[in-house]
Design a protein around this nucleic acid. Structure first.
Lengths: 207, 207
DNA sequence: TGCAAACTTGCACACTGTGCAGCCAATGCG
DNA sequence: CGCATTGGCTGCACAGTGTGCAAGTTTGCA
């Protein structure tokens, strides 16, 4: 009998599963960069990861999920980070902190993020799902905001609107980060976006 | 020889094509409401519209498009309305007017919109594409905004951010319109959303 | 050691979406 | 009117996604 090494260490079975999932996600990204998204088949991904076609779908519910949520559908999402903020913090500060944490985590694997963004931007069909790469689960975020402001998700405008605008800010920041080739940190970009929103999006003054 | 009756009257061929497309879009919506989106096959839609399976894809590039863009992919979009605003109008006013026009046009067919919204909201996979029903073509809108402010789409934050926030406002308005069962006009709802954004999304004061 | 739970695999199947070739009706023109 | 052209309609074959099911196989645990 031995002590657990780390929190993620929960037996051989769990480790193997995580390895397989990582291998599939890696293969997905690598093949997409090499061949282009449209020319990557699940068959090819599975072969590259040394598992069967059928096993791919034991880990991801679709090809897109393997690209957008490499950690699996149950990886911690933005809504979780938002809920983790101290209750006495104001909504806007809580939201800003949560999204900064999230994007900082994303940027830790800058190479992977760059590749993912290249694939997504090169494929219009993936664009609407761009936000999800930022682990943004819109509906849950709205719920978390409603909890924090003590409002009703259905009756009140604010929770839904703030969560949607937040998604917009994340999407735009990821986009800019990519076109700038990562020159500015994601956290800085999203701060700029949130500042502009907080200022009410005034029309830019012509220089 | 006779005069053209209306602008949309351009010969029997064109009319037939429009009829077929309308029949397909109608069948799509009706079947989706009756059976649920997942249980509607293109086969069934084509049969209901009295055309072959293959013909469906001559009008729509996917099943989703038939639901979201019943007028076809080349119907006038929000970006077109935005460009149609007088050049001397400020961006924010131009955007607001354009989106109000667009949503007013949508609400003209309130029954159809209600049904469409019911189907979309009942199917998570369609949710990210909710905006498109508002004919919002994100990228083109950003370009139009950049033209109006004389900015650069890649270098400047503003055009991309405003267009993304606009999409957010449309999405939220459609959502609220639906949960309220159409009690408040869409134009009013989107005005509220845009007002809140213009005010910088201040945290609601606890009553 | 042996059972149960969980992961893997193969197979069959329904369905989407595309390329291609032939067909037929609308159109335009002399 | 007659005829060539255009463009939508159709059937067919095919690649690919995603799912249900029923095995097999490995791990966890008593």
């Amino acid at each position: 009998m031995r002590m657990l090494i780390g929190v993620t260490e929960r037996g051989l079975r769990e480790r193997k599963k995580a390895d397989t999932r990582a291998a599939l996600a890696d293969a997905t990204l690598r093949l997409a960069v090499d061949r282009g998204w449209a020319h990557v088949t699940v068959e090819a991904i599975a072969t590259a990861a040394d598992v069967s076609y059928r096993t791919f779908f034991n880990h991801f519910s679709s090809k897109e999920e393997a690209l957008l949520l490499p950690g699996g559908a149950d990886q911690p999402r933005l809504s979780a980070r938002l809920r983790a903020q101290p209750a006495e913090t104001g909504v806007l500060d809580a939201v800003r902190t949560a999204v900064r944490e999230d994007l900082a985590a994303l940027e830790a694997d800058a190479d992977g993020l760059r590749d993912r963004m290249t694939v997504i931007i090169g494929n219009p069909s993936l664009l609407p799902r761009l936000v999800e790469i930022g682990a943004a689960d819109d509906r849950e975020i709205a719920v978390a905001i409603a909890e924090r402001t003590g409002q009703d998700l259905e009756a009140d405008l604010y929770p839904g609107l703030l969560s949607a605008v937040l998604s917009a800010a994340v999407r735009v920041s990821l986009w800019r980060w990519h076109v700038q080739d990562g020159a500015t940190p994601l956290t800085t970009l999203v701060d700029e976006a949130l500042d502009a929103v907080a200022a009410g999006l005034p029309a830019p003054t012509t220089r």
